[in-house]
Nucleic acid binder design. Structure first.
Lengths: 212, 212
DNA sequence: AAGCGTTTCAAATTCTTGTTTGAAACGGAA
DNA sequence: TTCCGTTTCAAACAAGAATTTGAAACGCTT
């Protein structure tokens, strides 16, 4: 039996297992994921899951920890030295890139989506570690753009409006693509999407400012 | 064994069963729903599900049919005779009311959300019967507001932007409420929400128009 | 090569869950 | 009351899935 921290070691089997688990959990969520399927995809024996992780739950925990560390940090050059409008564009692009339509499928985002619909014990840390920071950063940028005079609640709502536009593609991309085919694919779909969301939202902010 | 159409009859047991099933399927989705739980909540015997509906799948089908008929039709007075800006507000309010935060919990919306994450055979008709019509109506209104000169793709995106803002509260209301407590409750939360979404979006459209 | 801890494996086990079954209860018609 | 179709019920059943187990394979050290 293993006792040391799994996520640290370079064990080949655990790495394949976590990799396969990322896909399975992202695709189906915790409850509907099948460890048989994971073991199969990882070319590992079914019992390996229990041997290394103590069970399905432990594999899930390890997978979440692994995926969390994979999230690329926000580039620091977005902090200052740009117009807030540009920072909004970059921030939206960053959210899409990190969690929704980056070059490699964003498993953590999908898992958050599944947790939203069928929460497990881990939903809270996902909310606190990914949703809240992104929303707060959005809100800060929007506050700067809006200037004084716009109410707190409206800024909050604006941040949610931007986030909602992004998350639509996390929760319901196949649906969107069924209704409007060819809308969000292609090599720089992510960039185009970010630009459209940011521009639309800048209009929304402008209106808040005008009505303040 | 019953052969006639279940949804037509007034059988007390089937009604309680479908009612309990609505809650269960809305809460957990098809795969994670437990027919034992449904039968319990309906004060019916477990075997009643198979007796009346032929199985879990049949109960799901009957529940979807029942819930679809419950959706209140869009009031026809929204068609003409109002400024398109007002029509947008009403349309947004209608979407929220029908599927997301109406007075009674909107089971059909939740089921669509679950289907988006874990599709079953019925996802297509849900998309075609509820998502596409609402999006098309939104798009029509937005087209009218934008006037000529705004590109097709941008109108499509604008409709998705509005829908995304609405669906955020369908997919992730608990998350939103955990981060910003007290934002979306109270008696007329739905109305306030609709107003904010519509106003923000009118700003987005205005910007598209200006840049056209 | 022998010994020993670690890892892999197939099979057995246990638990959960949907389905089936056969009998009992019910209720109206003869 | 008796008969008969319908409905309810508890228990059995079957399938799927996670977990456990005990032995075999492996790899390293002596």
């Amino acid at each position: 039996m293993l006792t040391r921290d799994i996520t640290e070691d370079g064990n080949e089997t655990t790495r394949r297992l976590i990799s396969a688990a990322s896909e399975e959990f992202a695709l189906h969520g915790f409850a509907s994921a099948r460890i048989r399927h994971i073991a199969e995809a990882a070319h590992a024996n079914l019992a390996a899951v229990n041997y290394y992780f103590g069970g399905k739950e432990g594999l899930y925990r390890a997978t979440l920890r692994f995926l969390s560390r994979q999230v690329p940090a926000e580039p620091s050059r977005n902090r200052r030295g740009h117009a807030p409008e540009d920072r909004l564009r970059r921030q939206v692009y960053g959210i899409l890139q990190r969690y929704i339509c980056g070059e490699r499928p964003s498993h953590l985002g999908r898992i958050l989506a599944h947790e939203s619909m069928n929460p497990t014990f881990h939903i809270d840390s996902l909310i606190e570690d990914m949703m809240r920071p992104e929303l707060e950063r959005l809100r800060a940028i929007l506050t700067e753009i809006a200037g004084v005079g716009v109410r707190e609640a409206e800024l909050t709502h604006a941040a949610l409006a931007v986030m909602g536009q992004c998350l639509l593609f996390l929760f319901a991309r196949p649906t969107v693509q069924q209704i409007y085919p060819g809308l969000a694919d292609g090599p720089d779909a992510c960039r185009r999407l970010a630009r459209q969301i940011a521009d639309f939202s800048l209009g929304g902010i402008a209106r808040l400012k005008k009505c303040a």
